[in-house]
């Protein structure tokens, strides 16, 4: 493509996407007749667009659409409970709108001085709040902050989630590798696996309510997947229910649970290796 050809890029785009008028078509045609490189380029682009047009988008299942609003609603409620700094600041700034300014006009001088001092203090507190990120500022008009997770609590939650993943993986590996033709329900067999599965179900519920951040979405999705499998394991018949065990094995395989656990563990360890952000220290915490 020569330098001169660059002037025809817009016309080529028009031709490819069906926006070319008669005058542009004439100009482009004249150029293409004289320029084999552009002619080949246009032809290749046209066939490329035919290929991309043949792509079919995967359609989610009816169950996915059925629960779409429910998930959206849950997310909106989560976000409402955690107002961001901008909206908290906006709330704070809206306070003067509610004041009765006509009453203020009649106030004595000392009232102006006092309110000036209060305003300066408030600005100082606000600047400190913005700079140091404390979540427990008592400035008037700012909504009550949600409980702030201390670094120790966060680390404990991380460890708990890691332990949950590890135990689930061991449980599923044992189940997936169980040879139905050779292995019967021994003392360390199905019954103990079901006991572990029940414990993990309880842990699933606890983790799902604790891991509420957007960055934990994949973890929550994995927990939901795991819950289905864990419930199936916990509800296996007391005897050696071979078809049911095979069904669970297929479920683990179909949902690629073990792979998801590995990917999640990789992601979590990758996140842990990221340079640590400035820890949010709760002012009331005595752990630091």
């Amino acid at each position: 493509m020569k330098n001169d050809c660059q002037h025809y890029e817009a016309l080529i785009a028009d031709k490819l996407f069906g926006d070319l008028g008669p005058e542009g078509a004439q100009r482009l045609e004249t150029h293409l007749e004289a320029c084999p490189a552009c002619r080949a380029l246009v032809r290749e682009m046209e066939t490329t667009l035919q290929i991309t047009a043949a792509r079919t988008r995967p359609e989610p299942s009816p169950a996915y659409w059925g629960a779409y609003y429910e998930r959206l609603d849950a997310r909106m409620r989560r976000e409402e409970r955690r107002p961001d700094r901008a909206s908290r600041l906006a709330d704070w700034l809206r306070v003067p709108e509610r004041l009765n300014f006509s009453a203020l006009m009649l106030a004595p001088r000392w009232a102006y001085q006092l309110s000036g001092t209060v305003a300066l203090l408030a600005i100082g507190v606000l600047i400190g709040w913005l700079l140091f990120g404390s979540a427990s500022t008592d400035a008037p008009g700012i909504a009550e902050a949600p409980p702030v997770e201390t670094p120790v609590q966060a680390a404990s939650l991380e460890a708990r989630a890691d332990r949950y993943l590890e135990r689930s993986k061991v449980l599923l590996l044992g189940l997936v590798n169980m040879d139905p033709n050779e292995q019967g329900p021994g003392p360390l067999g199905l019954a103990s696996q079901q006991e572990v599965a029940r414990e993990l179900i309880d842990e699933s519920n606890a983790l799902k309510t604790t891991l509420t951040g957007d960055d934990e979405r994949l973890m929550r999705a994995l927990i939901e997947d795991l819950e289905v499998i864990l419930l199936q394991i916990a509800n296996l018949e007391a005897g050696y229910d071979l078809p049911a065990i095979e069904m669970v094995q297929r479920g683990v395989d179909r949902r690629a649970i073990l792979l998801k656990i590995n990917l999640t563990e990789m992601r979590r360890s990758d996140a842990a290796l990221q340079p640590a952000s400035v820890p949010v220290i709760h002012p009331d915490s005595s752990t630091f």
């Binding site: 299942s61 996915y64 960055d215 179909r254 992601r267």
Partner: peptide, 19 residues
Amino acid sequence: ALRFRQLWDDFSQAPHDAE
């Protein structure tokens, strides 16, 4: 997160694939 999400999706049974 993109790298992991792509990996995840490559192997995951997204809702449209689950059934």
